[in-house]
Design a protein around this nucleic acid. Structure first.
Length: 149
DNA sequence: GCCAACGTTGGC
DNA sequence: GCCAACGTTGGC
């Protein structure tokens, strides 16, 4: 089983939103690397839910992959901000997974704290300029983050 | 709101 | 295939 991290802007969709909705299609990913990681996800994989672009960026909770990758319907919808005229139903360009709420962390583990921790220095998340919204987390990093909780 | 970093697009 | 222009991400 693999572990992952997915970013969301809490103003748009927070860990509390996921708790309320229980399960959610992770639509709107329009980056090939992030898409490829989603396609590699398997049902039951655990995911850190990261809050980005907000007052206190950090890891706020845990989700799990509920439904493996399938075509993101928003790419076909001209009314959606995620519409992609270059994609077609015959050859969909973008995928999504559905994630299910597992739990909130007892506290949000701040980006600042993650950046300062030598055990996490290899995480793409803490590297300057990284903009990936979906990324793998190795098992040791996963366990270490949870030990900080 | 600023801006550095980065991915994508498109002219050539 | 190069690379400048542009748009987006996301910390601060």
């Amino acid at each position: 089983m693999n572990h992952w991290l997915m970013k969301s802007e809490p103003d748009a969709f927070s860990i509390d939103d996921l708790r309320r909705r229980k399960q959610e299609p992770w639509d709107g990913v329009r980056n090939y690397q992030a898409r490829n990681y989603m396609r590699a996800m398997r049902a039951g994989d655990k995911v850190f839910f990261y809050h980005s672009n907000c007052a206190e960026p950090g890891i706020a909770g845990i989700a799990e992959v509920a439904v493996e990758a399938y075509p993101d319907p928003s790419q076909f919808d001209p009314g959606s901000k995620y519409f992609d005229p270059a994609s077609s139903r015959d050859a969909p360009r973008w995928s999504l997974v559905e994630v299910r709420f597992v739990r909130k962390l007892r506290r949000t583990i701040a980006l600042k704290e993650l950046q300062a921790d030598p055990a996490l220095a290899a995480m793409p998340l803490v590297r300057k300029g990284n903009r990936l919204s979906v990324m793998p987390v190795d098992a040791a990093e996963w366990a270490h983050v949870l030990s900080l909780e």
